[in-house]
Design a protein around this nucleic acid. Structure first.
Lengths: 195, 195
DNA sequence: TAGCCCATGTAAGGAGTTACATGATTAG
DNA sequence: CTAATCATGTAACTCCTTACATGGGCTA
């Protein structure tokens, strides 16, 4: 989902994966553009570009779309920085994006986007939404993996060894994620019980 | 690696991941643009776009760069199709791309590209090159995974549960690939021995 | 003869990449 | 005082996306 209707109707606003990543980070902690860049350069978070040529224009798009608002603030340091924080429309847009249903196409083509969504889910949409997400991810993986194995079995004869192994690597990756999803569900269930 | 010098010097030619994917598929089997599209729509191969607006321009770029050559051929069917096949310069470019060293940045940011390279390695560059690739991938993963665990351990306190779990999912994915790489090395060793 | 798959394209638009530019502040 | 880091941006290039266009051949 790349496009979201602005609250005023009419104009369509491009957000993009980078935009949602920024929105999610800002929801967690209001930050300057530079701090956001640092997250991408210094942490294993996603495969997002740390280039100012991507981040600053994306921030301006979000601001023009009224999803975030930036203000120059003095922190404890002398240096001034423009701190961005989501507007209420921004929180809504983020939440809507996070709580979309998980489909087969997401698992096949947009697994990184799914993991990004997950990373923001509990703080932005609550733990029950997180569990729901994990359950639908689990269901989608459970139905997808057999089709991959099917494909492997029927076409193994026509494929070179490396092609076969590459596909097996993909299958192993999905299986690892399936196991992880089960464990993550248990983690949240335990958290809910212990309260 | 997105750019490659043309054999005539001077002009730089953009290839891109899609270009190499096409080149690799053509090396395996000369095909028409439509057949190549079908690979992306019908098989689990990569996350490449099946849109003609991406594939046909990419083919033309490759042809202009003399890495492939298209000829209208009559197959058994009446219908005419333009069949592309790599030139010798195309084989060289593919081989050079495939046999690049595997670095940390590849593992962190371009794991999909690595798997694509692997998928073409044995038919295009031979089995010893494939084993070398797997070994350097294995080494890179072995050194990278501990740093991720380190990061997780030191920042677990500051992260929300979902952030922690998302990172763990990434680690599990890398570990699965590490196990896979070991097994793939054994597979090729066995193949070499049994000859 | 209508509709669907084959097969190849083009056009408009926007986003990301790379590279450059600009200052202020701090460390050595 | 020099260099590195902080902090924010702009410009050119070009690739991809979405959508539309064009026909030939096959099938019901």
């Amino acid at each position: 989902m790349k496009v979201s209707a602005s609250s005023s109707g009419q104009i369509l606003l491009y957000i993009g994966l980078l935009g949602f990543a920024l929105l999610g980070l800002l929801q967690r902690k209001p930050s300057s553009g530079y701090e956001l860049r640092k997250v991408f350069t210094d942490t294993p978070m996603g495969t997002f570009s740390d280039s100012p040529g991507a981040i600053y224009p994306a921030l301006r798009r979000l601001e023009k779309g009224k999803l975030i608002r930036g203000r120059v603030e003095k922190t404890s340091e002398l240096r001034q920085r423009k701190i961005f924080r989501p507007t209420s429309a921004g929180f809504s847009a983020l939440s809507a994006w996070l709580t979309q249903p998980v489909g087969r196409a997401d698992v096949v083509h947009r697994i990184n986007e799914l993991m990004l969504r997950f990373a923001f889910l509990d703080t932005a949409a609550g733990e029950s939404a997180t569990v729901a997400f994990l359950q639908s991810l689990h269901a989608e993986l459970s139905s997808y993996i057999p089709t991959l194995k099917q494909f492997l079995a029927t076409s193994v004869a026509k494929m070179p060894t490396s092609g076969r192994l590459a596909l097996e690597s993909g299958i192993l990756g999905y299986e690892a994620r399936l196991v992880w999803a089960s464990r993550a569900i248990v983690t949240y269930r335990d958290k809910l019980k212990s309260r």
